[in-house]
Design a protein around this nucleic acid. Structure first.
Lengths: 331, 331
DNA sequence: TAGAATTTTGCAACCGGTTGCAAATATCTT
DNA sequence: AAGATATTTGCAACCGGTTGCAAAATTCTA
């Protein structure tokens, strides 16, 4: 059925090695045989079998792209950038959906069976142990949107969530709010834990400001809406730091239900600056996470680790900044 | 580095074939050797190389998942369902982002190099020729969200967009609107062409109703907002059929800018019923496309075609229905 | 133009598995 | 317990490529 190296070799009247060499970068072939081989290959419609060659070269150019965030619209942007970025470097993303998976073993085994050259774990809700499981299996791995640690066991690319929490607190302080709160994502997510910590740290010196923290059950519209509805039942804060944009948008919907005007009656600042945040219906004030840079760095790092597997684990954090829009009163 | 069949064989004191057989469904191995092999495999942490075995079995369990819709939030749901559905059947999605690709050749070659068992083209904006290119290359393919034809060249799974256009028209007619319009997606998209046709067909007998059609440049929020803003500048219709939900949400934002109340001053009905449509901020009346069924059928069909490649091209259409919410005045 | 240096080529072994076949074992008859 | 039958096993060839090595062909040097 499929046309193989041997067919082309026979047609071109050369050895199989000659054919293989014309298709391998930097191999030694004379112009004459190359021409013969290319002609034969064209006539037959041959293109080399990447999997067969991976057997000897040890490289598949397959990258496992592992995530459990298939409900947060931000991740459509993330997948778009990852797939394009990988494609541009000649790598192929093997997508793994971990939504309903609690331990890493199956994915590790599966991705090893497919001899992926590397793995990118793209999630802010998976524990560090997930990425570490790949490293333990000897697979180059980077954890995108993961937690920063001073002694990382795997490459981490993302933002300093603690600093973002502080930044959000400062935005609220600067506006003179006296009662503020963090409405986080799931309590188990490292991103939420860190944002909460930064938020409270920044507020600690301000004894005149009342600060509190609560958690939504997921990074999702419904969870944000439900949690904000609950908060609004009794004595809500003047302004909130929403755990991320989609949560904040859910919260906005609960506020609208109550007839509250934003930002006059109540304020909120999100985090991510996903495409939807600037939709005029929301016009969400938020903290921008530089997604394209994070993704480019993640790809760089996984490629670098494939080339030098013993490379020291590295953390790359990118600065965030407040994007002023309409859900926080003007300074 | 990696532990291979041979290592396990030596450890277990059996031949390589014996090891291979314990890991192949339905092969003949005695309980005793199987136990020995499994013990050895466990100790060594062996798991078979899927790519190497694909060389002889001719099956990689890799499925190309090809799309160019990385900006429509609906497709996050689509990718979620596809990846989970494929994983459940032991298949692996190799994701291909065609956003900036105009001809199918590169993808076809690439996916053949990786010996994918089949391909799913998930797009309502790619032309039929795209899926046909895979079929011509001898790769089992199904076009999800593709155009229905009476003599299909490839498997198509989706909805009857003409019928949906009619359904939208009828919803507007039933509400007594006298000036209605279709604000489509990109004019080149088959889905938009068909929806426009159905819409106009249903209105043709109603000479008392004024109907018009215009097109947004993409299925995106910005395009919908821009096109609606343009329409609102001069003599807009009373109610619109928006080419899809995200376009309609963009249109809602333009309406809000103009101070129009929905549905009192102006109405709109979308199409898809993506998760966001029921967010209370939008509460979008829309036509539901049964995404889970479409995706399940697509997977079934691609699997079926892998098993019987000469299978006759088939079209599977799923019924849609109007979901009444708040952007069209009550009946 | 002979001899040395360089480039190109094919052979054969290998990557990590699978599988048809025949030999070796085990199980069933009677 | 012997013979017939059924099951399990290992050998060896193969899947579609790559690559070290030595021979062959080409190019360079004097």
């Amino acid at each position: 059925m499929a046309v193989t190296l041997k067919d082309v070799a026979k047609r071109a009247g050369v050895s199989r090695s000659a054919v293989s060499r014309t298709f391998t970068e930097g191999a030694s072939v004379s112009a004459k045989t190359r021409a013969k081989v290319e002609a034969a290959a064209d006539e037959l419609g041959y293109s080399p079998n990447a999997l067969a060659s991976s057997l000897t070269t040890g490289r598949t150019k397959l990258i496992g792209l592992v995530s459990n965030n298939f409900h947060n619209p931000l991740f459509l942007e993330v997948f778009d950038l990852f797939t394009r970025g990988l494609q541009e470097r000649g790598l192929r993303p093997l997508l793994v959906n971990l939504s309903h998976e609690t331990n890493p073993e199956n994915s590790v085994r599966m991705l090893r069976q497919y001899s992926v050259d590397g793995v990118i774990v793209a999630s802010s809700t998976l524990p560090p142990s997930f990425a570490e499981a790949f490293r333990d299996a000897g697979v180059p791995v980077v954890h995108s949107f993961g937690r920063y640690t001073t002694s990382p066991h795997v490459h981490v690319v993302g933002i300093d969530n603690i600093a973002c929490g502080r930044m959000a607190a400062q935005a609220l302080i600067a506006r003179g709010h006296k009662r503020v709160a963090f409405m986080g994502g799931p309590e188990g997510a490292t991103s939420t834990q860190d944002r909460a910590q930064g938020f409270l740290d920044a507020l600690a010196p301000h004894s005149e400001i009342e600060a509190s923290v609560s958690y939504a059950s997921a990074y999702s519209f419904d969870a944000g809406r439900a949690e904000m509805a609950r908060l609004l039942q009794s004595d809500p804060a003047e302004a909130y730091f929403g755990g991320d944009d989609v949560l904040s948008i859910g919260a906005l919907s609960a506020m609208a239900d109550k007839g509250l005007r934003v930002p006059q009656d109540i304020g909120i600042i999100g985090l991510n600056d996903m495409a939807m945040a600037r939709w005029e219906n929301f016009n969400l004030t938020t903290i921008r996470q530089p997604i394209p840079e994070i993704i480019a760095a993640s790809i760089d790092l996984v490629v670098g680790t494939i080339e030098r597997p013993d490379r020291h684990p590295e953390t790359r954090l990118f600065p965030c900044r407040v994007i002023e829009r309409g859900t926080l009163r003007p300074l």
